[in-house]
Amino acid sequence: MLKIAIVIGSTRPHRNGEQVGQWVHQVATKRTDAEYTLVDLVDYPLPLLDEAMPPSFGQYANEHTREWAATIGQYDGYVFVTPEYNHSIPAGLKNAIDFLFAEWHNKAAGFVSYGVAGGVRAVEHLRGTLAEVKVATVRTQLVLGLHADFENYQTFKPTAHHEEVLGTVLDDVVSWSTALATVRK
């Protein structure tokens, strides 16, 4: 069975990403097409990239890198839950991606973004970053606005429409992850 990680990309206190990620996980686990796991960057306190060798060498000297590599390497695909900070992705998410290389290869990713402008600019940056580590990204993304989808900008209020779009994101990630399994072999 495919294994898909739902990655919460924000680590800041009082973040909206945790409740969005939990909702994505709750919706995903109703499905039977893959095993869905929540991966919260808060649980992997990576320092700023501190490996002496480039990640493409795969020679990880630090235990935190090896633990992160083992976590990411076990998945066939990803759904990134990301806010938009200053027209881009959170530094912690970028750093977590930069720590690894081969563990990301030939896998698929989808996106659930949120922010004042729905997080669309963050996802555009994330697509480019993931392309460099050989992650294929699906076109459909779920966009959440802080004004419309969060009460007082902090309590997530998903609608039935959001669940439908998320279903399409998950369908695409599963489909592409399945296809890329042959490439990974």
Rank of each mutant, 00 (worst) to 15 (best):
R15F: 02
G21M: 05
V39M: 02
E18F: 11
M53L: 11
E35S: 14
G58M: 05
L48M: 15
T29P: 00
V39D: 03
A52L: 10
H14W: 10
A34Q: 02
V20L: 05
L48Y: 14
L38P: 02
E51F: 08
Q22R: 12
T37Q: 11
Q26W: 06
Q26F: 03
L38V: 00
P47E: 03
D40P: 03
A52W: 08
G17P: 10
L48K: 11
F57H: 14
T29N: 07
H14E: 13
T37S: 10
N16I: 01
G17R: 10
A52H: 12
M53A: 14
D43G: 08
V42G: 14
D50L: 06
D40S: 03
V24A: 05
H25E: 07
R15H: 08
P54E: 05
T37C: 05
L49G: 15
T32V: 01
A34C: 01
L46V: 10
F57C: 11
D43I: 01
V20R: 05
Q26H: 11
G21E: 03
H25I: 00
V24E: 00
V20I: 10
V20Y: 04
Y44C: 05
V39N: 04
Q26M: 06
R12V: 05
F57Y: 13
V39K: 03
D50V: 03
V39S: 03
E35V: 11
P54G: 06
V39T: 01
D50F: 06
G17W: 12
A28S: 06
Q22L: 13
V20A: 04
D33W: 02
D33V: 00
H25S: 06
V42K: 15
E51I: 07
D33K: 04
K30H: 07
L38N: 02
R12P: 15
P47K: 10
G17Y: 10
P54M: 07
P54F: 09
P55C: 12
Y36T: 00
